[in-house]
């Protein structure tokens, strides 16, 4: 693939104190590509998404989104300097995120959870925002739940609201951080179905952290195995999930697929 990547990590390091979470990471994603990130706990999977969503700053390197530096901006002499608030706000328009714990706004109805940001941030009229919310709630099969509060919904329903809420802003890139890990097993399917549908019908770049290997195989163009803040191994899902080259990857997959051992 020779196209300009929509996401590019260029020798990115991220540390918490002495602990290195991302270690000189190089990582690229092509437009419309569906990439799944797998790896052991603490390997930096969430951090990659959180850096992209501007929730976590980086210590070294440059992250590019849509060709523009995310955490930096160009000064007059074409040198990179740390980004200011206005730059971050412009860049955030390109990304949307779905959180493991849903993070819905409990004091707003489902409809307002969806329409508040488009109205206040994008300046949509109430009618436009309601219209958009209606369409997306239909897409996630929650057309009749618009007037409920998040606390009145099941976890699976809440997460589908979470997906719709992120889509309301029409991002080019969607980030999913273990979107089904907080759900009871019987509710996982309905959320995965919605995400799969989204992948099939929308021109979206999708970056997802998940432990649902079967699902990863179905929807991903590429699977990346993270270990200690680096990509140890990556490739098409069949290759990584069925015949990984690295021993660490094999150990990890064995543990995930045989949780009871």
């Amino acid at each position: 693939m020779s196209r300009e990547p929509i996401i590019r990590f260029d020798r990115v390091s991220k540390r918490f104190g002495d602990f290195t979470v991302l270690d000189n990471l190089d990582f690229q994603v092509q437009p419309n590509e569906k990439v799944t990130i797998i790896g052991p706990s603490g390997s930096g999977k969430s951090t990659v998404l959180r850096v992209l969503m501007t929730l976590e700053p980086i210590n070294e390197g440059v992250v590019y989104v849509g060709g523009d530096p995310l955490w930096h901006e160009y000064r007059r002499n074409n040198e990179l300097s740390p980004a200011r608030g206005a730059h971050l706000r412009r860049m955030r328009e390109r990304l949307g995120m779905v959180f493991q714990q849903f993070n819905l706004f409990p004091h707003m109805t489902v409809r307002r959870n969806l329409t508040e940001a488009p109205r206040r941030v994008l300046g949509l009229s109430r009618a436009e925002a309601d219209e958009r919310a209606h369409e997306l709630l239909e897409l996630v099969n929650l057309g009749n739940q618009a007037d409920k509060y998040p606390g009145q919904l099941s976890g699976g329903q809440q997460q589908r609201v979470g997906v719709a809420r992120a889509l309301m802003m029409r991002p080019r890139i969607m980030l999913f951080d273990e979107p089904t890990s907080a759900l009871d097993p019987e509710l996982v399917g309905e959320v995965l179905k919605v995400i799969r549908q989204l992948a099939d019908t929308h021109d979206l770049t999708m970056l997802m952290v998940t432990h649902e290997m079967h699902f990863a195989r179905q929807i991903s163009d590429r699977v990346c195995f993270f270990d200690q803040g680096r990509i140890l191994e990556q490739g098409p899902p069949e290759e990584i999930l069925s015949s990984p080259k690295e021993a660490r990857t094999r150990e990890f997959l064995h543990a995930v697929l045989n949780p009871d051992e």
């Binding site: 955030r92 995120m97 206040r120």
Partner: peptide
């Protein structure tokens, strides 16, 4: 804190 993060992800300004 997760509420704050959701609000950042939706690009609300600090005042909003």
């Amino acid at each position: 804190r997760s509420q704050h993060e959701a609000a950042v992800a939706l690009n609300f300004t600090p005042r909003q």
